[in-house]
Nucleic acid binder design. Sequence first.
DNA 1: TCACTAACGGGACACAAGTTCCGTTAAGAT
DNA 2: ATCTTAACGGAACTTGTGTCCCGTTAGTGA
Lengths: 206, 206
Amino acid sequence: MTAASAGPGAVRPGGRTARVRAAVLRAAGDALAEGGLAGLDLADVARRAEVGRTTVYRRWGSPANLVADLLADMAEQSLPRTETGTLAGDLRANARLVQRTLADARQGALFKAMIAAATCDEQAAAALHRFYDTRVTEWEPCARQAVARGELPEGTDTREVIRAVSAPLYYRLLTTGEPLDEAAADRAADAAVAAAKAGVFVTAQP
Amino acid sequence: MTAASAGPGAVRPGGRTARVRAAVLRAAGDALAEGGLAGLDLADVARRAEVGRTTVYRRWGSPANLVADLLADMAEQSLPRTETGTLAGDLRANARLVQRTLADARQGALFKAMIAAATCDEQAAAALHRFYDTRVTEWEPCARQAVARGELPEGTDTREVIRAVSAPLYYRLLTTGEPLDEAAADRAADAAVAAAKAGVFVTAQP
DNA sequence: TCACTAACGGGACACAAGTTCCGTTAAGAT
DNA sequence: ATCTTAACGGAACTTGTGTCCCGTTAGTGA
């Protein structure tokens, strides 16, 4: 067992290695946005990144692995959260952010491709779950504060409230051809608020 | 332009051709359930279906096409709908049905794979949209009747109510590792009811 | 029942995806 | 500045996916 048993990039992660990783992830994102998961050819990614084909095969090995790494990279980049003072305002802000992201040609295609990868590969799925966990954790305080303000009942599952906002937007993106507009975003936020205020997300505790 | 210009299976759809199609779709379903979209190798499908490799390549050509055909086949098989007399009861029945389908190992994997295929291929996407359109149309009467009974406000977008039930279940299936249990199904149905009663799905009309 | 030909299926083939080998470059430690 | 070796990258090689050709099987109409 040598020092390199953890795989390439673990012992000398700086300099050239980091440059190669950045270029490859960039190229992979481009390829995914253009052709979806099916269009993710490792040889093509290597060409786009101007990197040796061997390197890509050695470090990532499969499209799913590459997507998993890309997701891990994206989970680190966090967006600032808005605070409006009311649950409805905060959730609308969240819904608009999600809607704008998914409606964007490049980003939307990228997310669709990553979801597709997660359905094929266990490792990509784990990375995707971590990604959404991070995002939910970022926005959870909105719902927490709403409970503190008395807008929502005590015992509300605050993470579930945040997820309820995104769900209809993703469902629409994946199962219908209809465009994701602002009206859809507002509807998603309002539906989550109505359900949460009705106590649907209160968890029974013994 | 010959009689066969519409592709194989168009002129003599009966007998052997139908048998081959059934065997291939069956095998494709198995392969998808086991290995996801990435595991859908046409040569492998041919082997499972005990059919010539050439035949599969000629009639379907690509994994996405095969999935599209599988979806078209599934859209034809319709499940009976329950009627309980209240919106909450009907939507819970719907939610439970979706939940049971997605929680089932084979069916769940199959649906995930088909969603993945829809993100890669335009034709598969169209087939998927048609599939969900069919399902929504089947359940829409629940919401229509609720409007007629006065349970929901006039002007409610009834299709959107039905979609609101499935959305959280699919979102959970795709973005978290958590299991889809009956509690999640009931919560999804209750949330849709609360939002619909609050008038979130009323469409403004000039 | 027979003729016609659509559709199937085995085998040979072309090409691209992925692997292995080994020399070259540069990160990190002293 | 120098040394060690992790990581890169070109080229040859292997594997298997998808195509083409053509003989065989069986659906459909007379």
